[in-house]
Every structure is written in structure tokens, then in C-alpha cells.
């Protein structure tokens, strides 16, 4: 009985040691879906930047057109 207890605890120790061998990742953030919040915020900033670039692009195009007349 004592022996089997020892083996069991040794096995558990091995399992715990193995779990710590694995690199830690943000698995919780993925499982509860909070990562989508980050993606949404970053995409909004990206699109904002693109809209800004598009408006600048159009303004410069208009300037070029006016200048050529």
C-alpha cells in the first residue's frame, strides 16, 4: 500500500514536471474569446490609418488635377 502510494505520487510529480516543460502561452485569452477584442481594436486602428491615407491620396490627386488645368 505504501509502495503504491509512493509510485502514484512519483507519477503525479512527473506529470507536473512535464506540464511545466511546456512553454506558457496565452491559452486563457484564446479560450474566453478576449483575443477578439484585441483583434477588433487593432483592425480599427489599421482601417483608420488606411482611410487617412486614402483621403490624403484623393486630396493630392485633386491638387494635381487643378494644377494641370
Amino acid at each position: 500500500m505504501k509502495k503504491s502510494g509512493f509510485f502514484l505520487s512519483a507519477m503525479f510529480l512527473c506529470i507536473i514536471a512535464k506540464a511545466q516543460d511546456k512553454p506558457e502561452m496565452a491559452d486563457v485569452m484564446r479560450s474566453n474569446g478576449k483575443i477578439y477584442v484585441v483583434v477588433a481594436v487593432c483592425l480599427l486602428i489599421l482601417f483608420g490609418l488606411f482611410i487617412y491615407l486614402f483621403i490624403l491620396d484623393r486630396k493630392i490627386s485633386n491638387l494635381e488635377k487643378n494644377n494641370n488645368q
Partner: peptide
Amino acid sequence: FLFDVPRLFILNE
């Protein structure tokens, strides 16, 4: 942000 990446030490996520 969403795709799977390799699990590496030090670098992690």
C-alpha cells in the same frame, strides 16, 4: 493574432 503559432520557450506568445 488568431492563428496557431509554435510554442517556444522565452518567446512564448
